[in-house]
Write a protein that binds this DNA or RNA. Structure first.
Length: 1094
RNA sequence: GGCCCCGUGGCGAAAUGGCAGACGCAGCGGACUUAAAAUCCGCUUCUCGGAAACGGGAGUGUGGGUUCGAGUCCCACCGGGGCCACCA
């Protein structure tokens, strides 16, 4: 039981709602909820489970428990989900609202390096502190489901899921992942032919020896050991995933990242690229996040084209460490095969006639080959230059690469044949071509690509125009069709005259162009006229969407109508103006033209696309490539396979071992978890040739097949029990644990499975988590990775939803105040004095820097230690209590908006709760001030309107407006002599999701103890009939301005309302001497009287 | 550089295309008080007229457009923020 509150002696209002009283009652109710397990929710099949209730799974992004404790950003999202959870619970849902700890990761390990304290110890301490802080907020988590990703009982299942992914392959025909055992079966049965697969090197399954079979299967796995160029961070001593590199620096710590060929565990996430993209349509997520993911996946359509070498084949030979970063292809036989041609990806196959040279990435294996064997005809000097360039490029960090986008490079001394023109073109290498995208090689079309243009200029390479720009085509059309001397403003006439000259000059193939125009116009005519484009060439601002006649006048705007050529997107004067640029129109002379247009200079004996529009030209080239075997249509993705291994300590060990021949083997399920061994020290092994930290744990890593519990690979001979094996020494990245924690909450105690099937079906269902709230900083990283794991688990039949998170919401960043000097430098808040009396007319002068007396202005800044503007939640709770804290963070503004913390504003929320308390409780005696009885009609109507509005606002996560409505209602109550019990009975539960402690306390003070928790009551529902008003007041506008008000029966017909409006005295004054053109009546809204033009 | 989002009082912010500024902070005036704090009541976009009641005009970054009616929809520009950034 709660100890009764003991007021401090001598206080004027001993039972006023003060921070002390709030703190007392909050701790009391938290204890009462805990003792009663008020927020525990049962699973299907467990005692207390109510199958009649619908479910609601409301999830927070679990925190990384840092030593610094909670900051004010955490409770923002957590309060929002708590309000929703409490609301849904009171609406009769079984609510799953859990909390846990994302506890593996770099910061704890970095701290351990400094202090020598084991990360487990510091992490456990941080978790205890976080838990204490969160519980102080009164969040309604089911703490019985709490776990950390570092718990062995948890990470054994993280390892288990890894093994499921490792033991699966992606069946392109079926479009889903399947167990690799099924692949083996199909190969054995002859349902699939290994020799059809590039990874087999053309060898049939039956013809393979055990080693070949193993290599083939390993190359098909969804988790594979890939040797490729990765992001290597020497400072952190680990490789990083693509997503963890931001602006060439590590996401954690901001250290420079280099590219390095390394053998690492990769996840074949690229196999899911299309589904990860398409299924974004299934989820209710912020548009910005869906866009970010879509852009990260980066789908582009184009063609793969082979450019044959002039001097025949190149064999890369043995011993190279440089693999081609083939996406989704494990480098195996493929990278060793001789090269007959240079393969590129392009999104602009229509520009192939303009490809005047090739560029490959410095990491491309062709470069390695040339460095080893100088091509015929290449001078020693050129060879040395190449060697120098490649060495320099390798030593450049990604930051350096990005800082100078200079177009340096070196020739390889090799030529290829442009298959379209049949001409020899040289191959160069330059680091503006990225090894990780496409094939790490491009056909360079300098006339129509800015980067290629810059490179060609810097290195004196040929430039050939093959696209006639669309805007010039448009101008030609105007010149010919629109009779400029009549219809075009004078300032354009000279430009157009020049332009007409240009189209007839030799360099732009006028015949082909004219033909293209004719084709387009003929097609448009055949399609029934086409789109007319209105252009106002005389006055600014002309715009209209409906066709009219030439030279029509509409209002003050003169419109000139012209038939359009295809898809020019000219809608306004400004669009046309932009075509010309500012000082006359631009041509593609002097810069690359990367836009669309019409093909020119693009004909050979085999293929001619002259005059075709870009889209048509692309298709024509692809058709020709495919029919002649020189290339094919492909879809390419920016997304790369996910680098999953880290050379660090504080992470999940891989459940894998290597035999003496270097083959990897899975650890069987029964041998899980593979425990993280103790280490004597956590100092990274600094080296250019990276070694994982676990290499220090030699007695752990060296073991036997039997001891490690090695599982046999389907279709292959098992290892002997006493065979010596070495454990995988890498650990999993911090993302591993967060990829599936939302699943474990559903069934955290399960020892048999990672999640019980029944619990999974009940809590996740077909749409997954109902509401997921967390920061936008995870828009690609965690949210993409978790989707990938979920989809694999879905394919393997382990979960029933395609997507893990049905609805996602990002809470905004909470910022803080700081002060800015006139030179824009920032001043810490404790170095500034406020002078309220000295405000200037322009609002400045209120704040002065103490040291200098300089006037400073208040600005919004991120919270940072140096600005002394970090807010500690513990302090705020001590000053105002948790309910006020919760209320303030929700009242600050829209949940999704970034908002500045303003300590002064908290008092407003605190005063609201004080007034609320005072309306229901006598401040002197602590006894209820509520009178038994009914409310008056006005109060009742307001109550029900408030209930309706608050419910709607909660549903749409509009907590700030919900709180405003509650304040308004409370302000109304303040005017009453006493609050009727009818009101209190509904108001208190209505408040409960926002200020749960206060609601409980008010209830027992008003209605007495002994009943259920308010948190378990039904959420109030409004009655529509109460809201109906007999009379309503409507504003009456004349010409859109409010000129009067009328009171009419709510049921009045529009005709009645019109009559009332026109007979209103004020309205009649405004209408005096004017003829009414029409009257617009919007029922229950307003009336607008439109007067005829004078 | 590309894409996206946002510009409303002194401040945080409200407003299904329909009375702009709800609610809160700060400020001003009043009540209570010996006084202050606390509390309560009132005022508070700018501007013009008026002693006042009240009335007129302007007003949601700027310029245009659509509409009976625009903070809201469309176009362009300016400013701020976010994401991506040599992705062929």
């Amino acid at each position: 039981m709660i100890e009764p509150y003991q007021p401090e002696p001598g206080q004027e209002f001993p039972y006023r709602y003060t921070a002390r009283l709030a703190g007392h009652l909050e701790l009391g109710w938290q204890r009462a909820w805990k003792d009663a397990q008020a927020y525990r929710v049962a699973n299907p099949g467990q005692a207390g489970f109510d199958s009649a209730r619908p479910k609601f799974y409301c999830l927070d992004m679990f925190p990384y428990p840092s030593g610094a404790g909670l900051h004010v950003g955490h409770p923002e999202g957590y309060t929002a989900t708590d309000i929703i959870s409490r609301y849904k619970r009171m609406c009769g849902f079984n609510v799953l609202h859990p909390m846990g700890w994302d506890a593996f990761g770099l910061p704890a390990e970095q701290y351990a390096i400094q202090t020598g304290v084991h990360p487990a110890i510091t992490t456990r301490a941080a978790i205890d502190n976080f838990r204490r802080q969160l519980q102080r907020f009164g969040f309604s988590y089911d703490w019985s489901r709490e776990f950390g990703t570092i718990d062995e009982a948890y990470y054994r299942w993280t390892q288990w899921i890894f093994l499921r992914i490792y033991s699966a392959w992606y069946d392109d025909r079926a479009g889903r992942a399947r167990p690799i055992a099924e692949l083996v079966d199909m190969l054995e049965q002859g349902e699939r032919r290994a020799e059809d697969d590039a990874a087999s090197g053309g060898v049939a399954w039956k013809a393979m020896d055990a080693k070949q079979k193993r290599a083939f299967l390993d190359s098909k796995r969804l988790a594979y050991l890939g040797e490729q160029t990765v992001n290597w961070c020497p400072k952190l001593g680990t490789a990083l995933a693509n997503e963890e590199v931001i602006d060439g620096r590590s996401e954690r710590g901001g250290y420079p990242v280099f590219r390095k060929p390394l053998k690492q565990w990769m996840f074949r996430i690229t196999a899911y690229a299309e589904r990860l993209l398409a299924d974004l349509a299934l989820v209710d997520w912020p548009e910005s996040t869906r866009t970010m993911q879509a852009e990260w996946i980066g789908r582009s359509e184009g063609a793969e084209i082979d450019f044959p070498f002039v001097d025949g084949h190149f064999s890369p030979g043995q011993g190279t460490k440089l693999g081609v970063a083939g996406r989704s292809e494990a480098p195996s036989h493929a990278s060793q095969a001789p090269l007959a041609s240079l393969r590129v990806f392009t999104t602009r196959p229509d520009t192939i006639f303009g490809a005047t040279f090739m560029v490959v990435a410095p990491e491309h294996r062709l470069v390695e080959h040339v460095l080893r064997e100088k091509p015929k005809g290449m001078t020693d000097e050129a060879h040395a230059r190449l060697r120098e360039y490649v060495a320099a490029a390798r030593n450049r960090s990604d930051v350096e690469r990005q800082e100078s986008k200079d177009k340096s490079g070196a020739a390889l001394g090799i030529d290829v044949i442009n298959p379209a023109t049949g001409k020899r073109i040289p191959v160069w290498t330059a680091d503006y071509v990225l090894i990780g995208y496409g094939h790490g090689a491009i056909m360079a079309v300098p006339a129509h690509d800015e980067r290629d243009f810059a490179f060609a200029q810097a290195n004196g390479l040929a430039i050939r125009d093959v696209v006639y720009p669309r805007h010039l085509a448009a101008m030609a059309f105007f010149a010919r069709e629109a009779k400029p001397e009549q219809r075009v403003a004078e300032r354009w006439a000279a430009d157009l005259a020049d332009f007409v000259g240009l189209v007839t000059s030799d360099n732009v193939a006028p015949g082909a162009f004219a033909e293209a125009l004719e084709t387009t116009r003929a097609r448009r005519a055949a399609e029934g006229g086409g789109t007319a484009i209105p252009v106002d060439l005389r006055e600014r601002g002309g715009s209209d969407a409906t066709p009219g006649s030439v030279g029509e006048r509409r209002g003050s705007t003169r419109i000139v109508w012209l038939d359009a050529i295809d898809d020019m997107k000219l809608h306004t004067f400004s669009d046309v103006e932009n075509l010309f640029g500012n000082g006359g129109f631009q041509t593609h002379q002097g810069e690359a033209y990367a836009g669309q247009g019409y093909a020119v200079n693009s004909a050979s004996a085999e293929l001619s696309i002259d005059g075709m529009a870009t889209e048509d030209a692309k298709q024509a080239v692809i058709r020709w490539l495919e029919s002649s075997g020189k290339g094919k249509r492909v879809v390419n993705y920016r997304l790369r396979d996910w680098l999953f291994s880290r050379q660090r300590y504080w992470g999940e060990p891989f459940p894998l071992v290597f035999d003496s021949e270097g083959n990897h083997h899975a650890v069987s399920e029964s041998a899980l978890p593979v425990r993280l061994p103790e280490l004597a020290d956590y100092q990274p092994i600094e080296s250019e040739d990276p070694k994982p930290l676990l290499a220090k744990a030699t007695s752990w890593s060296r073991t036997t097949a039997a001891e490690a519990g090695v599982a046999p690979t389907p279709g292959l001979p098992a290892l002997a029990p006493d065979a010596p094996v070495t454990r995988e020494l890498n650990t999993m990245p911090g993302w591993a644990g967060s990829c599936w924690y939302y699943l474990r909450y559903c069934d955290p105690e399960n020892r048999e499975r990672f999640i019980g099937a029944e619990a999974e079906r009940y809590w996740l269902g077909e749409r997954g988590v109902d509401l997921y709230v967390g920061g936008a900083e995870h828009a690609v990283l965690h949210l993409l990775y978790a989707r990938f794991w979920h989809k694999v688990l879905f394919d393997l039949g382990e979960v029933s939803s395609r997507e893990p998170f049905a609805k996602l919401f990002h809470q905004g960043l909470i910022t803080s105040m700081a002060f800015q000097r006139s030179d824009k430098s920032l001043v810490a808040i404790d170095e500034v004095d406020e002078r309220p009396g000295e405000i200037n007319a322009d609002g400045t002068g209120a704040y002065v820097e103490r040291a200098t007396g300089q006037v400073v202005t208040q600005v919004i800044a991120k919270m940072s230690k140096s600005l002394k503007n970090v807010i500690n939640p513990d302090d705020v709770i001590a000053d105002f209590g948790a309910d006020t804290f919760r209320l303030y963070e929700m009242a600050m503004g829209p949940l999704e908006a970034s908002k500045p913390w303003n300590t002064r504003d908290i008092a407003g929320c605190f005063r609201f709760l004080q007034r609320l308390w005072r309306n229901l409780v006598d401040e002197n005696t602590g006894l209820a001030r509520v009178v038994e009885g009914q409310a008056d009609d006005t109060t009742r109507r307001l109550l029900h309107r408030t209930i309706k509005g608050v419910r709607q606002d909660i549903e749409s996560l509009g907590f700030n407006t919900a709180i405003s409505k509650l304040i308004e209602f409370n302000n109304h109550l303040s005017k009453l002599e006493a609050v009727p019990s009818e009101v209190a009975r509904m108001l208190i539960p209505l408040l409960s999701p926002f200020v749960p402690h206060l609601a409980e306390e008010l209830w027992i003070r008003v209605f007495g103890p002994g009943g259920p928790f308010v948190a378990h009551m039904s959420y109030p529902e409004h009655r529509e009939d109460v809201l109906v008003e007999a009379q309503i007041e409507l504003p009456v506008q004349v010409q859109g301005k409010v000129r009067g008000r009328i009171v009419v029966p709510a049921a009045a017909t529009p005709a009645d309302v019109e009559a009332a409006a026109l007979s209103d005295e004020r309205v009649r004054e405004w209408l005096a001497g004017k003829a009414v053109a029409k009257v617009i009546v919007i029922p229950k809204r307003m009336v607008n009287v439109v007067v005829k033009d004078a």
